[in-house]
Design a protein around this nucleic acid. Structure first.
Ligand SMILES: [Mn+2]
Ligand SMILES: [Mn+2]
Ligand SMILES: [Zn+2]
Ligand SMILES: [Zn+2]
Lengths: 143, 143
DNA sequence: AGCTTTCTGAATGTCATTTTCAATTTCTAG
DNA sequence: CTAGAAATTGAAAATGACATTCAGAAAGCT
């Protein structure tokens, strides 16, 4: 089931309404590069849709996260970032502290080990966050 | 070298001054339970030191983080938390999303694997964050 | 002790995020 | 189709954690 359908069904199920703004934002969201802030997407959208409001973009992104098609990211720079979420394609992040580059990684062994850690403590994991901060290869060269 | 010494030497080295407020806050910091917010420690301190200012507590905690005796934590609830840091005792966290319980864990294999991930991407890790969010055993029972 | 530098604490500023509210839009029910 | 209830929108204002300002106080060197 694709992300547009997931969102549409969520809207129907919750008794929400289908508005042109929401469709516009959904389109931009799916077409955008990942790891953008609300502000990023807002300014991107303003190019073609100058009347759209910041609050609407913000509320709609929260809605995307709620219905599971977006993931909220916090890399500790004071801005929440978003990325389209593919249900069966989990990944974590490497973040360059110098240039801001974000690289995605997958490591099934780590995922498995953290399950074991949770089990040892009788924790039932809902989600996790694993981020490696440092210098990307470019930035490491320069300094 | 203990945390008081590390802090004292840092203060001397940087040309800062030794004030009674800083010593008071250091004592409370070391005696406090971990994972507290600035506000938590501020109210704790006010019991015995009603004249101490919030800004001073805040600035002093930042100073502790700067000199390496404190670690700043962000569990995504909009409050920065702090914990005394023991240089050679790194750990990560399990966070209960229901009751707020925080449990610490260490898993050398995960640490090693994440080094390998970074190496594969030519990243030079400075720090990382690995948090598992979910229900602790108590909260899992109730629901 | 005198003097320069740093510190303190109350108040104020900052900034991302969230809320408010009146006008508008959606969409169901008749 | 159309009226009316309910949700949405966007501008503006509110919120809240954190950071900064500044005048008076304290530290500590000589
Ligand atoms: Mn990503
Ligand atoms: Mn801890
Ligand atoms: Zn870089
Ligand atoms: Zn719990």
């Amino acid at each position: 089931m694709d992300q547009v359908t997931i969102f549409s069904e969520y809207v129907r199920r919750k008794g929400l309404k289908n508005t042109s703004q929401r469709m516009t934002i959904l389109e931009a969201f799916l077409g955008s590069k990942s790891h953008f802030s609300t502000e990023d997407l807002y300014f991107e959208l303003r190019k073609d849709h100058p009347k759209i409001g910041y609050a609407t973009v913000h509320r709609t992104l929260k809605l995307f996260a709620e219905c599971g098609i977006a993931s909220e990211l916090d890399f500790g720079d004071g801005q929440t970032r978003f990325e389209p979420l593919d249900v069966n394609q989990h990944h974590d992040h490497l973040v360059c502290t110098h240039c801001g580059l974000i690289v995605e990684f997958t490591e099934p062994q780590i995922e498995k080990l953290q399950e074991q850690v949770a089990a040892q403590h009788n924790f039932k994991i809902e989600r996790h966050r694993h981020e490696l901060y440092g210098l990307c290869s470019n930035c490491a060269k320069q300094s």
